[in-house]
Design a protein around this nucleic acid. Structure first.
Lengths: 340, 340
DNA sequence: TTGAAAGCGTTACCAT
DNA sequence: ATGGTAACGCTTTCAA
């Protein structure tokens, strides 16, 4: 392997000239620059990462921690890991993957040994041990997801409130006034970060603000929408609009559950999915959606992390990214004006 | 950050003693060892990864390249990346993720800069640029999947031939003699590594060896089993056993396609999935299966790579890992003895 | 059983 | 605009 010394000798210049010619950190005359670049190319020179990291005190690596416990959908988290990796490369960083039980220990380890310059935290839980850790170590960390206590943390998440409001607005604009929300299965609320709560809260608040009745139903299992659908129509028989923000499995059979009630989408009921994570697979949710797209949040998180690494403090603790409306034809005008 | 010098001073020993006490690479008296360990613990000392890597000429990082082009299922490849990461940690290596177009360039880069000590290649294509690259660089590489030309390469894959034979054996043991294979969509054969070919070849060979007629059908789309099913019964009306090894989407609606023909599983037809990759999601294929489980191949690949990194004599070119039979009740005895 | 010191290959400071 | 060189923090050889 060629070293910088080989390049220097070959180009007839000093080592520091080579370093500067390649990094561009100080001006070098065109002629010597050419000589250096040619010599480097000829020798197939690439700076040794470890030497560079030691001298510069920077590894140009960011760590990504994803616990991947049994009850979360690994495909979703890996989609984020992928997207972080792609964004990181755009900023000239490589990505170290820390999974499973190594998510916490690995974060400690990679920070303590300066293996990584910073860490992106995925699959954030309400009370996340990595939040505590992030506060105690001198190491930039950005959370994708918002834990209960964000004190001193940098977090990026979808603007779920915006997603909810936009969903309602869209339904209202189409003449719907009897609108219901299918939320998460109750057990999700305990472990997961606080977004399910934020969603329900905003749904109730905004519906009320609009003078509409907020109907909320929760599925009784984590894979079936039937119970939530009947609950909705028990509470509000004339429902014509549904905002769904729940487990993917539940949403996937929502259309079937509605059909079973003799209702079709969108002729009888309009449906919008808000703040749901599209699986990585090529079968996205079959609804109009304001999805939590990793391609939206990850670049933002990486940008903030890189700023942090470079000593730039983030503007705020929590950065919310607005979702983009995706139309798939499941919203139609309300057929008849429904009395309030 | 505490350095080795701090620990040495604190323990009242030399730097080299600290290094050896922590690495165990030479015998240290119990008492000094204790002093060193205590001092290290007290200072929260962790060796700086870059310094260690520079001095030892080893980063303890392995790279994982997964191209993730549009026509492959990313969930599957990310499942492998995860499993590689877990296996690597078991051998005290961290994992660098290289995705998308960076899969080839990144492999070059991480090898040239000694960022990683070795590379695991995922999603191997028949003619894979990374195979050429692996031969030209002085850097250990292990492929998970088998490209056309394995000359000088180390590859790990499922023993698809074994999977096929075992599937047939299982069906035959249950009295089935009219057995068909649903293979991959023709277009898959071009891009993908050679396993679809190996599967069909072995199916034909082994069926013939057993004196049975090998019936093979290919789906005409990459998401529907209907065409393959009708093709099978056109060729062999009395088919009672199906070995399926095709795109997951196709397999997922195989039961429905059979039902549409008035056939139920396993009453009328027994089904075994051979060499298919279960998605990471919690909805596995609903068939008896001999799956390509990442948890089977990845540890083997990592072991080989680590051996290669440590200079152990290179392994055989292709290592085949036998799948494990998973019963899900889709194989039943043939109801009536079917004449050959 | 332990210590001293020579690298490892960069970066970046101090000169010129 | 360029060069010399200390420093980064470790591993490992050579000595004792």
């Amino acid at each position: 392997m060629a070293t910088i010394e080989d390049v220097a000798r070959n180009a007839g210049v000093s080592i520091s000239t080579v370093s500067y010619a390649l990094s561009g950190k100080r001006s070098i005359s065109e002629t010597t620059k050419r000589r250096v670049l040619d010599a480097a190319a000829e020798l197939g020179y690439a700076p040794r990462a470890s030497a560079k990291a030691l001298a510069a005190n920077r590894s140009d690596i960011i760590a990504v921690t994803a616990p991947l416990h049994p009850d979360t959908d690994p495909t979703a988290h890996m989609a984020f890991a992928m997207e972080v990796t792609i964004s990181a490369r755009g900023r000239d960083f490589d990505t170290l993957l820390l999974v499973q039980d190594d998510a916490l220990a690995g974060m400690k380890r990679s920070a303590a040994s300066a293996l990584a310059d910073g860490t992106i935290v995925l699959d954030v839980a309400a009370h996340d041990a990595r939040a505590e850790l992030a506060r105690t170590i001198d190491h930039p960390v950005v959370f994708i997801g918002v834990p209960d206590d964000t004190e001193g943390l940098a977090c990026v998440d979808l603007d779920f409130e915006f997603a909810i409001r936009t969903s309602i607005d869209e339904l209202v604009a189409n003449g719907h006034r009897h609108i219901a929300l299918i939320g998460h299965h109750p057990s999700t609320l305990e472990r997961e970060a606080n977004y399910p709560l934020r969603i329900e809260r905003e749904f109730k608040r905004y519906m009320t603000e609009l003078g509409l009745t907020p109907v909320v139903a929760h599925p009784t299992t984590d894979h079936d929408a039937t119970s939530a659908v009947s609950e909705i129509f028990r509470q509000q028989p004339g429902t014509t609009g549904i905002v769904v923000s729940t487990a993917n499995q539940v949403a996937m059979n929502l259309t079937a559950a509605l059909n079973a009630e003799g209702l079709s989408v969108p002729a009888d009921v309009s449906v919008i999915a808000a703040g749901m994570t599209p699986a990585m697979s090529r079968t996205p949710l079959p609804f109009d959606a304001l999805p939590l797209d990793p391609a939206l949040t990850c670049p933002v998180a990486v940008d903030i992390l890189v700023d942090l690494i470079q000593g730039v403090a983030p503007a705020q603790e929590v950065t919310l990214v607005p979702p983009v409306y995706q139309s798939r034809g499941t919203v139609a005008p309300a057929s008849a004006p429904t009395p309030a």
